[in-house]
Nucleic acid binder design. Structure first.
Length: 199
DNA sequence: CCCTGATTCGC
DNA sequence: GCGAATCAGG
């Protein structure tokens, strides 16, 4: 890939809006974040050094900060005492409830999940979604609501919603050890089939 | 470990 | 000009 006028202007825009180099690289495709940073250099863009907050933008702190806020929230939930005390059986029930709630089917991920977001309406800003709760009041993971192009090797690729609907997205929460799913969805995905009552 | 941008330097 | 490698940092 080369730096066409189109790609350069896209870079300019996203960089100005405060997107990280990796986000821009993912968006453009065919380039690494290093390439983006290098190009940004030659274009003499930037200005965002390590002033105070490392990485997070000064004025446009929306999307990045929001995403991090979500991560923090999820972490806190997991560390909550009452959550750690929960027994296996209860946990299983919780998963079942969650499964019934969103009824996603990992098996259909590959082909049917493909749905490109229109260039214009691309919205890199994940909105915080009201977290679902089970009878016990346990808080379930809050999806970062990422679109296909925003997924990386370590973001949860659990599909949420109907691929044919506009609000379709992926969980997007952090996944460990390059797993396709976050810790929560990994358990759901590999759960015994007879326990999930598909359809 | 994950991520961020910054810089260098061979191509 | 380009970008991988590397550096420095949160």
């Amino acid at each position: 890939m080369s730096w066409t006028d189109e790609r350069v202007s896209t870079l300019r825009q996203l960089w100005t809006e405060g997107h990280s180099a990796s986000q821009i690289a993912d968006r453009l495709g065919g380039v690494t974040r290093n390439a983006v940073i290098g190009k940004a250099h030659r274009l003499k863009l930037e200005s965002r050094g390590k002033t105070a907050n490392g990485g997070a933008e000064a004025g446009v702190e929306d999307e990045t900060v929001t995403a991090r806020a979500v991560e923090v929230e999820v972490e806190e939930v997991r560390l909550a005492p009452r959550v750690e005390i929960v027994e296996e059986t209860v946990v299983a029930g919780r998963f079942a409830a969650a499964s019934a709630a969103s009824a996603p089917r990992p098996q259909s991920f590959g082909a049917t999940a493909l749905k490109m977001e229109p260039e214009e309406s691309f919205d890199p800003q994940p909105e915080i979604e009201e977290s679902a709760e089970s009878e016990t009041g346990e808080v379930l993971p809050i999806a970062r609501k990422l679109t296909l192009v925003q997924l990386t090797e370590r973001t949860c690729k659990w599909p949420v919603g109907d691929p044919m609907q506009d609000d379709f997205h992926f969980c997007g929460n952090p996944s460990r050890d390059s797993s396709p799913y976050c810790e929560f969805h990994a358990k759901l995905a590999f759960q015994a089939v007879d326990r999930r009552r598909i359809r």
